[in-house]
Protein backbone atom coordinates (compact mmCIF):
# COMPACT_ATOMS: atom_id res chain seq x y z
CA UNK A 1 0.00 0.00 0.00
CA UNK A 2 0.90 3.66 -0.13
CA UNK A 3 3.43 4.73 2.51
CA UNK A 4 2.66 7.55 5.00
CA UNK A 5 5.42 9.66 3.44
CA UNK A 6 4.07 9.27 -0.07
CA UNK A 7 0.49 10.01 0.92
CA UNK A 8 1.63 13.11 2.83
CA UNK A 9 3.68 14.33 -0.13
CA UNK A 10 0.59 14.14 -2.34
CA UNK A 11 -1.81 15.99 0.01
CA UNK A 12 -1.72 19.33 -1.88
CA UNK A 13 -2.91 17.60 -5.04
CA UNK A 14 -5.24 15.08 -3.38
CA UNK A 15 -6.83 17.42 -0.84
CA UNK A 16 -6.78 20.81 -2.51
CA UNK A 17 -6.39 19.81 -6.17
CA UNK A 18 -3.37 22.07 -6.44
CA UNK A 19 -2.08 22.37 -9.99
CA UNK A 20 0.78 24.39 -11.42
CA UNK A 21 0.29 27.15 -13.99
CA UNK A 22 3.34 27.64 -16.21
CA UNK A 23 4.43 31.25 -16.03
CA UNK A 24 5.77 30.95 -19.56
CA UNK A 25 2.80 29.59 -21.50
CA UNK A 26 -0.10 29.50 -19.01
CA UNK A 27 -0.51 25.75 -19.37
CA UNK A 28 -2.01 24.23 -16.24
CA UNK A 29 -0.27 21.04 -15.12
CA UNK A 30 -1.84 18.48 -12.84
CA UNK A 31 0.08 17.02 -11.22
CA UNK A 32 2.70 19.78 -11.15
CA UNK A 33 6.00 19.05 -12.90
CA UNK A 34 9.53 20.35 -12.80
CA UNK A 35 9.46 21.27 -16.49
CA UNK A 36 6.50 22.42 -18.59
CA UNK A 37 6.07 19.80 -21.33
CA UNK A 38 4.78 22.44 -23.74
CA UNK A 39 7.27 25.31 -23.47
CA UNK A 40 10.08 24.00 -21.29
CA UNK A 41 9.41 26.64 -18.64
CA UNK A 42 10.53 25.93 -15.10
CA UNK A 43 8.61 28.53 -13.11
CA UNK A 44 5.06 27.93 -12.01
CA UNK A 45 2.42 29.37 -9.75
CA UNK A 46 0.06 27.21 -7.73
CA UNK A 47 -3.55 27.23 -8.86
CA UNK A 48 -6.41 25.03 -7.70
CA UNK A 49 -8.28 22.95 -10.27
CA UNK A 50 -11.94 23.76 -10.87
CA UNK A 51 -14.29 21.19 -9.38
CA UNK A 52 -16.60 20.79 -12.38
CA UNK A 53 -16.16 18.96 -15.64
CA UNK A 54 -17.38 16.20 -17.90
CA UNK A 55 -16.59 12.55 -18.53
CA UNK A 56 -14.19 11.98 -21.45
CA UNK A 57 -14.08 8.22 -21.09
CA UNK A 58 -14.86 5.71 -18.37
CA UNK A 59 -14.97 2.11 -17.29
CA UNK A 60 -16.33 0.08 -14.42
CA UNK A 61 -13.55 -1.98 -12.86
CA UNK A 62 -15.19 -5.24 -11.70
CA UNK A 63 -11.99 -6.76 -10.35
CA UNK A 64 -10.34 -3.96 -8.35
CA UNK A 65 -6.89 -4.20 -6.80
CA UNK A 66 -6.28 -4.64 -3.06
CA UNK A 67 -7.40 -1.57 -1.11
CA UNK A 68 -10.34 -0.97 -3.42
CA UNK A 69 -12.28 -4.24 -3.27
CA UNK A 70 -14.90 -2.98 -0.80
CA UNK A 71 -15.93 -0.40 -3.39
CA UNK A 72 -16.40 -2.96 -6.19
CA UNK A 73 -17.63 -2.43 -8.84
CA UNK A 74 -15.45 0.62 -9.18
CA UNK A 75 -16.56 3.21 -11.74
CA UNK A 76 -13.58 5.27 -12.93
CA UNK A 77 -13.61 8.12 -15.40
CA UNK A 78 -11.23 10.41 -17.16
CA UNK A 79 -12.75 13.80 -16.43
CA UNK A 80 -12.05 16.94 -18.41
CA UNK A 81 -12.39 19.88 -16.03
CA UNK A 82 -13.74 23.25 -17.12
CA UNK A 83 -10.18 24.57 -17.62
CA UNK A 84 -9.37 21.72 -20.00
CA UNK A 85 -7.20 19.73 -17.57
CA UNK A 86 -7.96 16.00 -17.62
CA UNK A 87 -7.84 13.97 -14.42
CA UNK A 88 -8.51 10.32 -13.74
CA UNK A 89 -10.76 9.59 -10.78
CA UNK A 90 -13.40 7.32 -9.37
CA UNK A 91 -17.03 8.17 -9.86
CA UNK A 92 -19.01 8.08 -6.62
CA UNK A 93 -22.68 7.84 -5.77
CA UNK A 94 -23.94 6.06 -8.86
CA UNK A 95 -27.18 4.19 -8.20
CA UNK A 96 -26.27 2.09 -11.23
CA UNK A 97 -22.87 2.17 -12.97
CA UNK A 98 -24.76 1.95 -16.27
CA UNK A 99 -25.61 5.63 -15.77
CA UNK A 100 -22.04 6.53 -16.72
CA UNK A 101 -21.62 7.92 -20.21
CA UNK A 102 -19.18 9.99 -22.19
CA UNK A 103 -20.08 13.66 -21.84
CA UNK A 104 -21.81 13.26 -18.46
CA UNK A 105 -21.39 16.43 -16.38
CA UNK A 106 -19.71 15.82 -13.03
CA UNK A 107 -18.42 17.71 -10.03
CA UNK A 108 -15.68 16.74 -7.63
CA UNK A 109 -16.33 15.84 -4.00
CA UNK A 110 -13.93 15.01 -1.20
CA UNK A 111 -14.04 11.27 -0.52
CA UNK A 112 -12.09 8.29 0.77
CA UNK A 113 -10.38 6.93 -2.33
CA UNK A 114 -8.69 3.89 -0.77
CA UNK A 115 -7.68 2.52 2.59
CA UNK A 116 -5.08 0.14 3.88
CA UNK A 117 -7.35 -2.43 5.51
CA UNK A 118 -8.97 -1.84 8.91
CA UNK A 119 -5.83 -0.67 10.68
CA UNK A 120 -3.87 1.22 8.04
CA UNK A 121 -4.10 4.73 6.65
CA UNK A 122 -7.13 6.11 4.87
CA UNK A 123 -6.27 7.81 1.59
CA UNK A 124 -8.49 10.80 0.92
CA UNK A 125 -8.90 12.63 -2.34
CA UNK A 126 -11.59 13.59 -4.80
CA UNK A 127 -14.18 11.63 -6.68
CA UNK A 128 -16.45 12.74 -9.45
CA UNK A 129 -20.19 12.69 -8.77
CA UNK A 130 -23.01 13.47 -11.16
CA UNK A 131 -23.09 17.22 -11.61
Amino acid sequence: MISPARSWREFPQRYRLEAARCEGCEKVLYPPRVVCPDCGGCTFETTPLPREGKVVTFTVVRVPPAGYTEQSPLPIALVELTNGVKVMMQVGDLADPEELEIGMPVRLEFRRVAWDGEAGLIFYGHKAVKG
Partner: peptide, 26 residues
Protein backbone atom coordinates in the same frame (compact mmCIF):
# COMPACT_ATOMS: atom_id res chain seq x y z
CA UNK B 1 -0.44 -2.01 -12.43
CA UNK B 2 3.01 -0.56 -11.80
CA UNK B 3 3.21 -0.12 -15.58
CA UNK B 4 0.65 2.67 -15.18
CA UNK B 5 1.31 5.96 -13.40
CA UNK B 6 1.01 4.77 -9.82
CA UNK B 7 0.57 8.21 -8.28
CA UNK B 8 -1.96 9.70 -10.68
CA UNK B 9 -3.69 6.68 -12.23
CA UNK B 10 -3.11 3.72 -9.94
CA UNK B 11 -4.11 5.72 -6.86
CA UNK B 12 -7.68 5.74 -8.09
CA UNK B 13 -7.87 1.95 -8.37
CA UNK B 14 -7.55 1.68 -12.13
CA UNK B 15 -6.26 -1.62 -13.48
CA UNK B 16 -4.83 -2.50 -16.89
CA UNK B 17 -8.09 -3.94 -18.16
CA UNK B 18 -9.60 -0.67 -16.92
CA UNK B 19 -7.17 1.53 -18.86
CA UNK B 20 -7.72 -0.39 -22.09
CA UNK B 21 -11.47 -0.38 -21.40
CA UNK B 22 -11.29 3.43 -21.31
CA UNK B 23 -9.53 3.40 -24.69
CA UNK B 24 -12.18 0.98 -25.99
CA UNK B 25 -15.01 3.28 -24.87
CA UNK B 26 -13.55 6.12 -26.89
Amino acid sequence: GTAADQEWEGFHGITFPGLYAMLAQV
